[in-house]
Amino acid sequence: MASLTKRVLNLNKLFKHVDNYTKRLSSNFTYFPDNEKPVEGETLKMNMMQAINNAMDLTLKNDPTAVVFGEDVAFGGVFRCASGLQEKYGNDRVFNTPLCEQGIAGFAIGLATAGATAIAEIQFADYIFPAFDQLVNEAAKARYRSGGQFACGALTVRAPGGAVGHGGLYHSQSPEAFFAHAPGLKVVIPRGPIAAKGLLLSCIQDRDPCIFLEPKILYRSAVEEVPVDSYTLPIGKAQVLREGDAATLVGWGAQVHVLLAAARLAESRLGARCEVVDLVSVLPWDTETVCNSVKKTGRCLVAHEAPLTGGPGADIAAAVQVSAPLLCCCVLLWADVCCCVLMCAAVC
């Protein structure tokens, strides 16, 4: 009997542990879906993984030179973004490469140089650094160094980035700042399925090499009604998602949703309406939209998941100070966002 009681107690303890772990592993993240359709026509409920899959599917269908490749891509990739594509388009168009990021990037540059559309997957953005030389010294400079004779604009590198809550230090990084320092590249980060499809198709069709960083927390958690047809969204054009006059909140990728939550909080607690801007791309980035918003609100807050020092936030804050001198400008890591939005809206 005593033993049974002990067992029940242990079981209770176990449930409590599991409960605690679940709480510990989940992050405080609310997704705000897009309700506006970028184009008319039929839509389908898709999560961001499916929207990306759809964009690649359309590309492979319409562009016979297009190829999709990377580590474990043949069976669909570890995040399943290439699911079913090999079956549909053959193993010469959707294929595995050896486990070698610098090789993947170099191979992709060569493909694009020879006239193919190259869609390369780096399994995690944390592992893109062996390819840094190829992307920064080669892809970014191919047109420039040849005087416009050669280019690899038909290259798109996709990589899942950002935190999910249990990825630890090597499955959570946001490396956009490193690439934002390389003239010649475009660095694009979508905030959800509709944006991901339109922006990925833009990256693929763009005449410059693009790095497309997919916030992996959104792969399954973000679901929207995505137009079935092909469409593109402009790179380098920020989007105002929520209008307001109290402060301008700037972010990109998953961080946009943190800012939307913070704006909602500011409104309910302080009655302050904050303007939320999705930067869409950190290179090039839309100075005009951000600065126009700040001229109106007089306050600006930039938040990114990537480390603070030398991050794109510093560049944005500096540009804002030049174009729209204002009361308060802060750059933050996401943990601080909510309290600082309140501070910014209330104190400054």
Binding site: R93, G106, G110, L111, A114, G147
Partner: peptide
């Protein structure tokens, strides 16, 4: 003749990628 680049060996995986494009 692809324009020469100063960093060493970067042209090597690129050449392989270009060859793959030809193969297709």
């Amino acid at each position: 003749l692809v324009t020469i680049s100063s960093p060493l060996a970067t042209q090597m995986p690129q050449a392989v990628g270009a060859a793959y494009a030809f193969k297709r």
